[in-house]
Design a binder for these strands. Structure first.
Lengths: 210, 210
DNA sequence: CGCCCCCTAGTCCGCACGTACCATGGCCGG
DNA sequence: CCGGCCATGGTACGTGCGGACTAGGGGGCG
């Protein structure tokens, strides 16, 4: 597993590099200074499992970059980094598909912990940042979790429909809702993202609902 | 993460238990003596990420159990254990979907290493066991591995075709071949099985947790 | 009481997926 | 040298998937 740093400020880049290499994380570290370089690196090295992405990149919007990376490499986790500590920024980052948010004011230790949590499937935001229930980590409804737990075992819509005792059309509605929530376009990506965010594999759920 | 031991011999069960708990592995350990109990435990505790399965269970065929576990809990890795060191047994175990093979003659250290490797996504077989190219862990051709590595990132046939610069029809041929080789019916299942067998960089969740 | 969200579900549609059958060319091993 | 496996693809076909649009019943909340 490797971690890719995307920051156009050489000082921060070097700092992150040092922090990560001296941490307990057993991960390779790459760094680039622009989004195109980042995309190239991701394309070339499929072992990159996490991207640390600075929001303030000259000439490039970090959120746009987050979106592009999410679309082209849906299984790669992204942590947004910013000097800015505004709740709204962290919230927007997570809502845009980031797996976490780290302000530059973090110490090396805090940063390491945050990264470990994200790698373990959690969504990390600083404690001071409180997101409302609506925009909480998973953001999925109970029904959607049930559905994705079956997606995560390779079942078809029809099979899920039988198991949940609803029409196949209803399953499709849930599946589509899950896609939107996870910002993916097909079931395989949904499963991969769900795995990464840690809400899969989940307990086999059958008839306990109603 | 927890490890489940399935062995009907109390002495071995206790031995494994002790070895695992004193090892560097930070994992809970459960043990049962039969396949039905194992299935029950898997159902109840979704945190079980690895099953150590004795091939010689009285009244139950270990390979059949492997198959059942693979079908019902496709994301749970299985290591087969046997007093028998025959190559053929190890080969058959891996071919049947096991993520590894451990002879009972292994020392505690060897066992710990083997388990760590499997948890990190590798397929472990003792060095003395040499599988021929034909019955190698995956049994997939190079092209098929390329294809499944892209399946494993949620790409569509068309996208894979573009990336490999071949017709979409050809991709379909490879995908179908992979399905047959892995004994699955759709791409999501293929990805899950591939992850479990370790020839897909599966989510770094477990790999990084230790 | 509206407003909103969730679960349910219907039709329609276009594309993706997976399979069947078949064919060519390359390469390897008996 | 020929049979076999592999990669390549072409047509065709049935089914699965996913989106667009629509909609009613139920529950929570201001």
């Amino acid at each position: 597993m490797k971690i890719l740093i995307v920051d156009d400020h050489p000082l921060f880049r070097a700092g992150f590099h040092a922090v990560l290499e001296q941490s307990a994380l057993e991960a390779g570290v790459l760094s680039v200074s622009s989004v195109p370089e980042a995309l190239q690196a991701l394309q070339k090295d499929s072992d990159i499992g996490l991207v640390l992405l600075d929001i303030h990149l000259k000439g490039d919007d970090g959120f746009a970059a987050l979106k592009v990376i999410g679309e082209r490499f849906p299984t790669t986790a992204c942590i947004m980094i910013s000097g800015d500590e505004q709740n709204s920024v962290a919230a927007r980052a997570v809502q845009s598909g980031a797996s976490g948010f780290i302000p530059k004011s973090f110490t090396a230790d805090e940063m390491t912990v945050a990264i470990q949590k994200v790698l373990a499937g959690e969504v990390f935001v600083p404690e001071t940042t409180n997101l409302t229930a609506a925009e909480q980590p998973n953001g999925l409804t109970l029904r959607q979790l049930e559905v994705i737990s079956m997606l995560g075992r390779g079942f078809s819509n029809k099979e899920i429909a039988r198991a949940l005792d609803v029409a196949e059309r209803t399953v499709k509605a849930h599946v589509s809702a899950v896609f939107e929530a996870l910002n993916v376009r097909n079931r395989t990506q949904a499963v991969l993202v769900a795995q990464r965010r840690g809400f899969l594999p989940s307990t086999p759920v059958y008839a306990n609902a109603r």
